[in-house]
Simulated scan of single mutants.
Amino acid sequence: MNANVEVRELCKRYGSKKVFEGLDLELGEGVIGLLGPNGAGKTTLLRCLATALTPDSGRTEILGLDPTHWSQRTELRKLIGYLPQNPGLYPHFTAAAMVDYIARLKEVTDRRIRKGEVQRVLAEVDLAEAAGTRVRKLSGGMRQRLGIAQTLIGDPKFLILDEPTVGLDPEQRMRFRTLTSRLGQGRTVLLSTHQTEDIAALCDRVIVFSEGKVVFDGTAPELADAASGRVWASGTQPAAAQVFWRTADGRYRVVGERPPDGTPVAPTVEDGYLQFLGAGARAGA
């Protein structure tokens, strides 16, 4: 793999709490999904990669640049598009003014070029007609799309998206998938989400992050296969220790040990994810 992002022995703590320690990671071109429970360290890792947070130790090289050097970090920030969980949009700005402001921060100084960039990225996320609407009047989904538009300013080579589909309706999510799959051609897109269906639909590679460690690194089908022989359909409610839920047909989907009347079910990415989080092991306890 030709890595655009290399992380070596990365460490980050908050006081006495260790978020991750000795983390090694390489990211190449394509759409890479990052899965993990709340508190696993995903957002901290994304902030370090976006140069918004400084790790305590270790080495990071992104697009051939070292963010520990001030001049290289400044150059790198022009090449990164970062969507945090809470983009921090200014409510009194119009959608166009908000994106224009980010373009200025990215040092797109030519007014004509900046205007063209604002129009381009708003069109990419279907907000061209809302360019003059103030942020406070946009719906939650429109604000999320505006956040995505901001990340596209300057045609960045490394996109970091933290929960980008929150607030999007099914049609908007489909459009996001179309856009993201196209953006993954010729650049690195790191997508953190709890939506396993987005991972299965979009990602060339999936990383499962748990307690500051990579516990799985492979393809979406390989992640689903990890739960092979551990997913069942049952007509009776399993024991409370099992991981299960009631499906629309009245049966129960069980991840873990086979129930007495269990019949095998094809595993999904979500099932494999539960396995790597230890749910499958706990199910048989």
Rank of each mutant, 00 (worst) to 15 (best):
R47I: 06
T236H: 14
G262Q: 10
G58C: 13
R246A: 04
E211L: 00
L35A: 02
L274M: 02
S16L: 14
R258N: 03
T178Q: 05
K115W: 14
N2Q: 13
Q275E: 05
L146D: 10
P67Y: 13
G250Q: 03
K42I: 01
A200I: 02
A281S: 05
T193A: 07
V108L: 15
G212S: 09
G278Y: 03
G212C: 09
V265D: 13
F93D: 13
P238V: 09
R104H: 01
L122S: 01
R187E: 08
G64T: 00
K17D: 08
C203M: 04
A201F: 00
L159N: 09
P55R: 14
V269G: 03
V108H: 05
Q242E: 01
K157T: 00
R251L: 09
H69Q: 08
A248Y: 02
H92R: 15
K78S: 11
E117I: 03
F209H: 00
S16R: 15
V255E: 01
T74R: 15
F158L: 15
R205F: 11
D66Y: 11
P156Q: 07
Q237W: 09
A248W: 09
A224Y: 04
E124W: 06
L89I: 02
D56M: 14
Q275T: 02
A50K: 09
E75C: 03
A220R: 10
C11N: 13
D24T: 06
V121K: 12
Y90N: 11
Y82W: 12
D169Q: 13
P91V: 12
D100W: 02
D155T: 06
R134C: 12
A149L: 12
G250R: 02
R230A: 07
L49E: 10
S181F: 08
E21T: 01
G28H: 05
I102W: 12
Y90Q: 01
A52Y: 05
T94K: 13
R251Y: 02
L10M: 03
S192K: 09
E211Q: 10
A220T: 00
E124Q: 14
P55V: 07
D169N: 06
L27F: 00
D66H: 13
V99R: 03
V215S: 01
D198I: 01
M98H: 15
Q242G: 05
K157Q: 15
I153E: 15
E29S: 12
T74V: 13
P164D: 11
R253I: 00
D24A: 03
C48H: 08
H69W: 06
L190W: 04
G278D: 04
L223P: 05
Q195C: 01
V215K: 07
I62D: 10
L34Y: 11
E171C: 07
L45H: 04
G229A: 08
V121S: 01
T54I: 15
T94P: 14
T151G: 02
V135I: 15
T247P: 10
Q85N: 00
A220Y: 01
A97I: 05
V135H: 12
G284T: 08
G235M: 09
V7C: 07
T165N: 13
G186M: 12
A224V: 01
M174A: 07
P37G: 04
E171Q: 14
I113S: 10
L35I: 00
C203S: 12
T196Q: 02
R205M: 08
D56V: 13
F176R: 11
E163D: 04
G64Q: 04
P260A: 06
P238Y: 04
V19H: 05
T180Q: 05
W70A: 08
